Amino acid sequence: MALNPPLNRKLRMGLVGGGPGSLIGPVHGIAAEFEHRCTMVAGAFSSNPERSRQAAPSYGVDESRTYGSYEALLDGESRLPEGERIDFLSIATPNHTHFEIAKAAVEAGFNVVCDKPLTLDLAEAEALLETVENSDVVFALTHNYTGYPMIRQAREMIQAGEFGKINATRCQYIQGWLADTSEDDNGTLAAWRTDPAKSGAAGTFGDIATHAFQLGRYVTGALPESVSCHLKTFVPGRQLDDYGTAVIRYQEGALGIVTASQVTHGRENDLELEVDGTLGSLKWRQESPNELVVRRKGQPHQIYTRSPGTGTMTPLAEASSRLPAGHPEGFYEAFANLYNAVFDDIARRASGSPFERRDTVYPNVYDGVEGMMFIEQCVASSESDAAWMPLSYPAARQ
């Protein structure tokens, strides 16, 4: 099969962020190049030019395409011939920088893959949405858990009506790495996540509850109506929440619960989703991602596994698998699945073909705006003693 048809070449990637000490920057680089559909050719890996130069060799980027700022990257790449400049820009920087980088990249005509949450606040998200809608670029948001084959299996089973009407969703994301004052230890991962100027109005809820909320939306398609939320800061001196629970009312009558913690001792990355329908229920855990548990009253419990070629997987789930049954696939593969879907649309755009912008396999700018509204309304609800706040958004993905 040709590479990125009809272009028949590798896509060219640029990265902002991912400098020394970064967690997610290298993940972007590995996932994007997982199936050899792209190669990283440019980067501004740090806002410190020297640190950016230090990081470049680990990504295989030549010094001539290593920049000291995102502005320099966009300017330098825009000046190159069309056949040499980057095809897309990935953004792996703290929350407070997403808006300015993404907006500038879109206005320069570059496709964007942006880390979540979309921006620092809802006003920025809405402004970025307008910028994207006034362009013809592909824009993706890395809620990468949507790339797991069994999550996509659950989504297609629900869409096919196998669980009947959806009554409830329960999604939790439980970690423990901030159970002490890690931000005082010069820990860069902790420091900006607990700083309102860099993380926004929410801490744990902005960082990981957004994953839980969006995962429920992605799998069920249920549209939120309102939210009631309690946020709590348990570690003394911390400025933002490190624990919280939200109750969500959906437009078709379903209820949802989102719980997030980063202060639960011993917990690692326990993202778990349960969905109750009138004909059955399902359960999936990110720490056992190759299994999907299905239960129906009066029947033995079923465990669907990632087992391509057996006839037990839905089409999208099977297409999202690479290895035979029993060989575990995980975080990088899920991230790569998101990139693969984005690459399909980037190739379509580059060849002048139409592509979908709202109903995409990967999370997009509309999901990002909805996620920012979720964060802001959860904070507002918590500040008002868990008062119900509206959550429906006109531009939400249907």
Rank of each mutant, 00 (worst) to 15 (best):
S22Y: 03
N167E: 15
K10W: 09
T66E: 01
R51I: 06
Y362H: 15
F355H: 02
K165L: 03
T278V: 06
L89I: 11
A102T: 03
N134Q: 09
F374C: 07
A222Y: 06
L282Q: 08
G164C: 05
S135N: 12
I86Y: 10
V16R: 09
G203E: 05
R306C: 13
F45G: 03
T210Y: 07
S90C: 10
H36R: 15
G206E: 09
M157L: 13
P20L: 05
S78W: 04
Q172T: 12
M157D: 12
V379Y: 02
R217K: 04
R12N: 13
I375G: 04
A317Q: 07
M372D: 14
P49S: 01
N95S: 08
G277R: 00
R322S: 15
P26E: 09
I208C: 07
E84Y: 14
A197D: 11
G176A: 08
V137R: 02
G187I: 11
P117M: 07
H36N: 15
W388H: 09
F331N: 15
P324R: 03
H143E: 15
L391G: 04
T264E: 15
M389T: 04
G309V: 00
S351N: 13
R306I: 11
G17W: 01
E183V: 00
E287Y: 15
D345T: 06
E35M: 10
P390W: 01
V219G: 14
M40G: 12
D385N: 15
P315E: 05
T131F: 00
T264I: 08
R306K: 11
V112D: 04
R238P: 12
Y332K: 11
R322L: 06
R37H: 05
T93L: 10
G237L: 02
A201G: 09
A42P: 09
Y145L: 14
N4G: 11
E82K: 07
L338V: 11
E33P: 05
E100W: 01
S182Y: 14
T259A: 13
Q262N: 15
E183N: 03
T142G: 02
A104R: 11
D385F: 08
S382N: 05
A246F: 02
S135E: 05
T259L: 07
K232P: 05
H36G: 13
E370H: 06
E124W: 00
G280T: 09
K297Y: 13
L323R: 15
R267A: 11
Y332P: 08
E370P: 00
F234R: 15
S199L: 08
D270H: 14
Y366I: 01
D241G: 02
L255F: 04
A56Q: 06
Q239T: 10
Q251G: 10
G266D: 04
H265T: 02
V113D: 02
R85P: 03
T314D: 01
S353R: 14
D75G: 11
Q54C: 09
E333F: 10
S392N: 06
N364P: 07
V112T: 08
E252C: 00
A341R: 12
L3S: 12
V258W: 01
T305M: 14
P324E: 03
V369F: 02
Y339V: 05
H36W: 05
R296I: 01
H143V: 14
G17Q: 09
V16T: 03
E77M: 04
R9G: 14
P5L: 01
N364Q: 07
F234P: 14
L73N: 09
